[in-house]
């Protein structure tokens, strides 16, 4: 799910990545809305507010909203920069933005649990950190899936899904496997996002700020899933190879496995 890049990704890779990250985005967005009364996984509303505040001449509010938008922008920038800069391992390059996101969200949870006094300044900064985290996640998923997976962009997703449903009224489009796969991916992301939001809402009312630790655990699962799966497969293959005892073909296979090692 995290190792492959762009065109080498299968539908299954995108479904796994899309559903899991959309689930965490839904959790973060609903939690921020309940606690801070601000959206953190989508910025369309912030753009509208920025324009409104500029029109009203509320420059301190303009500054605040611009800071939030910049943090989301910076998260996206950083995620893509990490993805395109690493030449050694796709996995590490793709896992790094998620590690940073985990650090951001657990920091919000930790601060909220032990230090948060509900002052305006604290609220504004915690929202900024959550926007950075969501930017990192959105930048990563969009970057490695060649923009097929956008886990926080529900406006675009709903538009694309509606267009697809409309296309499916014609038989020639219904029979198009690529379109069916796209619809499956988009609907999975939408359902995961809503599920994440509902579950986060329920968890928040029971556990408060600890909900951020749950999201962080979820992200750690995403990071480790590929690593454990890859290591496990590698181990199985090596065992199988040892059993055959070294024909030329198997040695080449072993060399190949070594080369793609994480």
């Amino acid at each position: 799910m995290l190792r492959k890049h762009s065109s080498s990704r299968t539908l299954k890779d995108n479904l796994q990545l899309g559903s899991l990250t959309a689930f965490s985005a839904g959790m973060v967005n609903v939690t921020s809305l309940i606690i801070f009364f601000a959206f953190t996984s989508n910025v369309t509303g912030h753009y509208a507010i920025l324009a409104e505040e500029i029109a009203k001449g509320n420059w301190n509010q303009v500054l605040m909203v611009f800071f939030w938008l910049f943090m989301f922008f910076y998260g996206n920038f950083l995620a893509n920069f990490l993805v395109i800069s690493s030449s050694r391992s796709n996995y590490i390059a793709h896992a790094l933005p998620l590690i940073l996101e985990t650090i951001c969200l657990s920091s919000v949870g930790f601060y909220g649990l032990y230090y948060y006094q509900e002052t305006l300044f604290e609220t504004e900064i915690l929202i900024a950190i959550m926007l950075l985290a969501m930017g990192l996640q959105n930048g990563l998923t969009a970057s490695i899936s060649n923009s097929a997976v956008k886990t926080t962009h529900m406006t675009g997703l709903t538009t694309d899904l509606a267009i697809l449903v409309s296309m499916f009224t014609k038989k020639k489009f219904r029979e198009n496997r690529e379109l069916r796969n796209k619809a499956k991916l988009l609907s999975t992301i939408a359902v995961s996002y809503i599920s994440g939001g509902v579950i986060a809402g329920l968890i928040y009312f029971a556990m408060g700020f600890k909900v951020f630790f749950m999201v962080s655990l979820f992200l750690i699962f995403i990071i480790l899933y590929d690593y454990i799966k890859f290591r496990f497969n590698l181990l199985l293959r090596k065992r199988r190879l040892q059993g055959y005892g070294g024909s030329k073909r198997l040695k080449i296979k072993e060399m190949w496995l070594e080369r793609i090692k994480i």
Binding site: L63, M64, F67, L120, F121
Partner: peptide
Amino acid sequence: LFLMVTQFGN
């Protein structure tokens, strides 16, 4: 931006 927010955000 963070420093400006600390100055004017309140």
